[in-house]
Design a protein around this nucleic acid. Structure first.
Length: 348
DNA sequence: AAGACGGGGGC
DNA sequence: GCCCCAGTCTT
């Protein structure tokens, strides 16, 4: 048997039961594919259930506010996905009568849908013969054929897409694509792949050449930055506080957080409190207290954030102040949510 | 072509 | 501590 035959046989016997595998409707498939971008299936599943329940159709999602969508997305990361999801839902509902484009060419024009997602939706929902190339596919192909072209270069992207397209079972692109990904996730895993029990081990060149652990090749990205965040947790005797929405291009765009003062290094309490910008920010206060002497280290893929929270007992807050109890309605970064989970407002 | 963009989990 | 995950968008 050839590669494709063996792969599909393996898939039909070993595939997981995943909620979005029970349908070929574009809305749930699209939703699941956006959620699974750079995200493990196990991490995405609970979010998928929550979204489908809150927004059963693309119209429900379109009618929601951005805050509702971001709140439901909270913790899943890469929040531009949620903003694009929402924008595309509004476009499909408003301009396309709720009908998604029915081919790769139309799908890839939508916000948040790139080559992978357009191929996935087109093949799964409409049986269009377009090959998906995700992290799993890179790994399976790089190993089976011993391809050492770095996968995160334009040349690599092109080469692997071409190879996947050649192998694609054009009679059954939906099953083939999902089989490639499932095989990469469960059998041809990044670490400790199950080569002994692998149905493709006969033809696997990397196994033959003992190069499994070296493939695929991926060029390293730049180093991580360190950042120092100081959050001002205002508190009045009426239990009001202040929250700001992040804007611009940086991390957590659209999410809310306490008023933030970022410094270029870790300051002592005296240094921090003597800064002009801090004085201007806290205004007329009774008391400022450092909540955590040891900064919380919040590690992201590309930066480490050292966060300290300053409790600011304030007499008066601007009109936009909200009740501490309302904070949970706002989408916040995990760093803030962790703080909220353990913080108990204290009496002075 | 290179960075930015989250958070969780494996080893 | 490093790598990876059903990638996309911006510069």
């Amino acid at each position: 048997m050839n590669f494709t035959k063996l792969l599909i046989n393996w898939y039909l016997k070993n595939k997981r039961n995943l909620p979005w595998r029970e349908t070929r409707e574009p809305y749930p498939i699209w939703l699941s594919e956006i959620m699974l971008q750079q995200t493990r299936v196990e991490q995405g599943v609970p979010y998928y259930y929550r979204f489908i329940e809150a927004f059963p159709t693309v119209f429900h999602l379109a009618e929601a506010s951005q805050q509702e969508v971001l709140k439901l997305w909270q913790g899943l990361g890469y929040y531009s996905r949620a903003r694009n999801l929402h924008e595309t839902a509004r476009y499909v509902a408003g301009e396309l009568d709720g009908n998604f484009p029915e081919d790769y060419k139309g799908l890839i024009k939508l916000k948040g849908i790139g080559d992978y997602t357009a191929s996935a939706i087109a093949s799964i929902c409409y049986n269009e013969p377009v090959a998906v190339v995700d992290g799993n596919v890179y790994r399976v192909l790089a190993r089976y054929f011993v391809i050492d072209t770095p996968i995160n270069t334009p040349a690599g992207v092109k080469e692997f897409k071409a190879l996947a397209s050649e192998l694609l079972d054009i009679k059954n692109p939906s099953v083939f694509n999902q089989a490639m990904m499932e095989f990469g996730a469960l059998q041809c895993r990044p670490k400790n792949p199950l080569c002994e029990s692998c149905p493709l081990n006969d033809g696997c060149l990397a196994l033959k050449q003992k190069k499994i652990s070296e493939l695929p090749i991926k060029l390293k990205k730049g180093k991580i930055k360190k950042r120092y965040f100081n959050y001002l947790v205002f508190q009045t005797k009426e239990n009001a506080t202040l929250l700001n929405q992040r804007t611009g291009k940086g991390i957590w765009n659209g999410l809310y957080e306490f008023p933030l003062i970022e410094t270029e290094r870790q300051l002592t309490a005296e240094e921090f409190l003597s800064r002009e910008e801090v004085g201007a920010a806290v205004g007329e206060v009774k008391h400022v207290q450092l909540y955590n002497e040891k900064p919380v280290v919040h590690k992201l893929s590309h930066q480490h954030i050292y966060a300290r929270f300053w409790l600011v007992e304030s007499k008066k807050l601007p009109p936009k102040a909200i009740s501490m109890d309302e904070v949970e309605d706002y989408p916040v970064p995990v760093l803030i949510q962790n703080f909220l989970n353990e913080y108990e407002p204290t009496d002075y």
